[in-house]
Design a protein around this nucleic acid. Structure first.
Lengths: 229, 229
DNA sequence: CCAAAAGTGTTGACCGTACACCCATGA
DNA sequence: TCATGGGTGTACGGTCAACACTTTTGG
């Protein structure tokens, strides 16, 4: 590579991840206790610095993999924060990503147990720098996306019940939904395959499991599809 | 400032602007002929490198100001492109912004006349690097935003007529709209103030001018407002 | 047999869409 | 007087929201 641009300033670039999870009741966020300066000991998003040979997306995947051991995480770039004083230590740009992970897939690595913790989204503590702003933006994006794309399935196990899915949407939108209308709407899209199996925990009667029909989804996407809860 | 992060790689960061304009018929994009290597002579978005003391937003404003002399431009960050090989000259991250400018406000500076040019959005040439991808994303964002926020007013003069506004929405969405339904919808939001003055060019009868009612808009925004065309 | 969650339909209000004719005026 | 774009109302169909009772079964 020939260097063309020698004269220009170079910058540190961080990647910070807003990691959402769902435990069948609450929408949660994974935070860590920062173990280096500045602001050591305060809660923060999971993050790291962009390295020389990797793209931004790759850096986000690396950071998530190091934390969780998971590889196939739903991930989307959110925004890049570029205020000059956002990190009091030194000037750092930060590209924020948000991730959706299935609680069941996730097991905290032993070496993280002491420092990483899930927080319900209504109880996020004060975070370092501009991280609370990032969380707010991620929350708004998740709400919006969940209305026009079936993004919620990334937060649920492979097999799930309609009441489970409804609780997820209620957690994302922080309001109660009518179960008749919800079921009607969801099923009318034709994206769920009903299984012959029932979930027996959580109720006497039991709720049928469903599976997300990814093939039908891809068909619909390719024909310009839009769905609303 | 104490340096905390010495060990990490630093990166060149560019800011590229997708500049939309509207001339009462077509939606247009302002492009420039690149006058430095690599890929000198090819069409490109307007851009520049982020400098030491400025935020990303400030860099975008500086770049727009240098090109147009305009200060109060509608500007929004779009996405940050971080592939390692996106610039064949050397590794450069690029944060893309999109801007909406009123054609009437804009006069090309003399020194740019030979190199900057408006292109109708249906006729965008091949651009350098990943700039066509940026343009596509900006176009989709503009379409989406125009449905939920009255963003279109940024592209029109202070006083405008309903048919003018309709032509803008038709250009953004690339489909024809019914004029009765459009007028009904737009006026029902109560965001337009009718003036006592008519535009006499463009038709025999003349069309009443309207002005965007920013105060009512702010009221509505603060009460959680959503509008669709 | 009872508590607790799953499952099921109907109706009225509202909204989006389709559609055709008159108006004002400059040339 | 005529060509051109501006301006207006109605009716239909589909979608959203509100609403209450029955089913299943483990304890």
């Amino acid at each position: 590579m020939t260097p063309y641009y020698f004269d220009n300033t170079r910058f540190l670039v961080a990647v910070d991840c807003i990691i959402f999870g769902f435990d069948n009741k609450q929408l949660k966020l994974l935070l860590i206790k920062r173990n280096f300066r500045p602001q050591k000991g305060k809660w923060s998003l999971v993050g790291g610095f962009l390295e020389g040979g990797e793209s931004l997306d790759q850096a986000a995947l690396r950071i998530l993999y190091n934390l969780s051991g998971l590889n196939d995480i739903y991930l989307e770039q959110l925004y890049t924060y570029g205020e000059t004083e956002r990190d009091p230590g030194e000037r750092v740009l930060s590209t924020a990503y948000y991730a959706l992970i299935r609680a069941e897939d996730y097991h905290l690595p032993i070496n993280r147990e002491s420092t990483a913790k899930w927080f319900p989204i209504e109880k996020i503590p004060n975070l370092i720098f501009d991280h609370n702003i990032m969380v707010d933006k991620a929350m708004r994006r998740l709400r919006r996306k969940s209305l026009s794309q079936p993004i919620g399935f990334e937060l649920l196990p492979d097999k799930f019940t309609i009441p489970q899915l409804q609780r997820l949407y209620e957690a994302i939108h922080q309001r109660e939904l009518d179960k008749r209308n919800f079921r009607k709407k969801i099923l009318s899209m034709g994206l769920l395959k009903k299984l012959d199996e029932k979930q027996k925990t959580g109720s006497r009667k039991g709720a049928f499991y469903y599976r997300f029909d990814i093939e039908k989804y891809n068909d619909l996407v390719s024909t310009g599809f839009h769905f609303e809860i």
